[in-house]
Simulated assay, not measured.
Amino acid sequence: MRDLMGMMGKVKEMQEKMASMQEEVEKLELEGTSGGGMVTVRLNGKGIMLGLSVDPSLINSDEVEILEDLIVAAHNDAKGKVEAAVQEKTQELTAGLPIPPGMKLPF
């Protein structure tokens, strides 16, 4: 019975840590760039775009497709950084817990 109580306490502690981690993730702001820094996208930890910066030299009606591609590339760069940061925080949180390999957190 003691083991069950101890496990329940660990579950509660884990829930509190997860809630704290989710708050931290929401506060993250990461930038992705493309075109040698000519396009910058800023995302929060949930992947919501907070800002976009485009070098004025890229604004040319004849090269719209290039600009669009650079924006997508910068967004993908920022999104990758957000995912890496979330994964790192999750690993810190779950260190030492017997979680099966490949199980993704947060759920």
Rank of each mutant, 00 (worst) to 15 (best):
M1N: 07
R2Q: 07
D3I: 07
D3Q: 09
D3A: 04
M5C: 08
M5Q: 14
M5H: 11
M7C: 12
M8D: 10
M8F: 14
G9Y: 12
K10M: 07
K10G: 09
K10V: 11
K10Y: 04
K10A: 13
K10N: 14
V11F: 02
K12P: 00
E13A: 15
E13G: 09
M14N: 13
M14Q: 09
Q15A: 04
E16Y: 08
K17M: 14
K17W: 06
K17G: 08
M18Y: 02
Q22T: 13
Q22W: 05
E23L: 14
E23K: 15
E23M: 10
E24G: 03
V25A: 08
V25W: 02
K27D: 11
L28G: 06
E29W: 05
L30D: 01
E31D: 10
G32D: 08
G32W: 07
T33H: 13
S34H: 08
S34Y: 08
S34P: 05
G35F: 11
G35I: 02
G36N: 07
G37T: 13
G37Y: 09
M38S: 13
M38C: 08
V39K: 00
V39M: 09
V39W: 01
V39C: 02
T40N: 03
V41K: 00
R42V: 12
N44A: 03
N44Q: 08
G45F: 00
G47L: 06
G47Y: 03
G47A: 05
I48A: 13
I48T: 07
L50N: 14
G51R: 05
G51Y: 06
G51Q: 04
L52S: 11
L52T: 12
S53T: 12
V54M: 04
V54T: 08
V54A: 01
S57Q: 13
L58A: 13
N60F: 01
S61E: 14
E63N: 09
E63I: 08
V64W: 06
E65C: 04
I66G: 10
L67H: 01
L67N: 00
E68G: 05
L70S: 06
A74T: 00
H75Y: 09
H75M: 04
H75F: 11
H75R: 15
A78Q: 00
A78G: 03
A78T: 00
K79L: 04
G80R: 03
K81L: 02
V82A: 07
A84T: 02
A84N: 05
A85D: 10
V86Q: 01
V86M: 04
Q87W: 03
E88H: 09
K89N: 03
T90R: 12
Q91A: 06
E92G: 14
L93Q: 15
L93H: 15
L93F: 12
T94A: 13
T94D: 07
P98K: 02
I99F: 10
P100Y: 06
P100C: 09
P100H: 14
P100W: 06
P101V: 13
P101S: 13
G102D: 02
G102N: 04
K104F: 10
P106H: 01
F107C: 05
